[in-house]
């Protein structure tokens, strides 16, 4: 079986898409791109004709790395039910790695699992107890550091800068994003995934150092 294009650069992002989480979602995207990788998630395609789970499985198959934030496991205010999308996609990613035959590219899959507090996950996904799960305390700086360390350790690339450096650049980018959105006639808080990713990408190219 052929390895998908850019397999070693693709990072699957499994996190909530709520407005409240949007800042942390953008933080993850920026950190992944500033480390030299490509962020992939279910939001990259807006095709209503595709079955969502098939689309997610296809993206998971194309990604070597997975960043999973299971922090949004609390009850929904209106429905009083928990959201299971993140644990489901985490299960798919771990399953793809586990059930891949020997020498298959999916055997190279690596996962970063994050929660808001340390050891909280043991109360609702106790089966993950054997895994190393990092906490981020809803702090963009902690998220960037976790992602940077994870990608640096697993990819062995020597081109990934430090967490503080990426965090400073993220703040600079956010500062410049507002006048940029005005120029493009875009609404800052209503950017699509592709618009945001492209903005980050082009900004990084223009601000190489």
């Amino acid at each position: 079986m052929n390895t998908p294009a850019s397999y070693s650069d693709n990072v699957f992002i499994n996190c909530p898409f709520d407005i409240a989480y949007n800042n942390l979602f953008e933080t993850i995207i920026f950190a992944v791109q500033d480390c030299g990788f490509i962020p992939r998630c279910a939001r990259e395609e807006d095709d209503g004709g595709n079955v969502r789970i098939i689309k997610i499985m296809k993206i998971i198959d194309e990604c070597k790395y997975g960043i999973h934030d299971i922090s949004k496991a609390d009850l929904d205010i209106s429905s009083k039910l928990a959201r299971f999308n993140m644990p489901l996609e985490l299960g798919l990613f771990l399953g793809a790695h586990h059930y891949a035959p020997k020498n298959h590219y999916n055997k190279e899959k690596r996962s970063l699992i994050m929660d808001v507090e340390p050891y909280r996950y043991q109360k609702f996904i106790s089966d993950l107890s054997g895994q190393d799960i990092l906490s981020h305390n809803n702090s963009p700086k902690d998220i960037i550091t976790n992602i940077r360390n994870f990608l640096s350790t697993n990819s062995r690339r020597r081109t990934i800068p430090g967490g503080q450096y990426i965090f400073d650049r993220f703040n600079r980018f956010n500062h410049e994003l507002i006048p940029f959105c005005e120029t493009m006639h875009w609404e800052r808080n209503a950017l699509t995934f592709i618009e945001y990713v492209t903005s980050v990408n082009e900004w990084l190219k223009l601000n190489a150092i």
């Binding site: 791109q33 030299g36 395609e45 081109t159 990713v197 990084l204 150092i209």
Partner: peptide, 20 residues
């Protein structure tokens, strides 16, 4: 950090239209 960052390549997202 700047030196390290200058060595890495920025890769475009496969779904990004080149016109955008």
């Amino acid at each position: 950090d700047q030196l390290i960052a200058s060595r890495r390549r920025i890769k475009s997202h496969p779904k990004t239209p080149s016109r955008l």
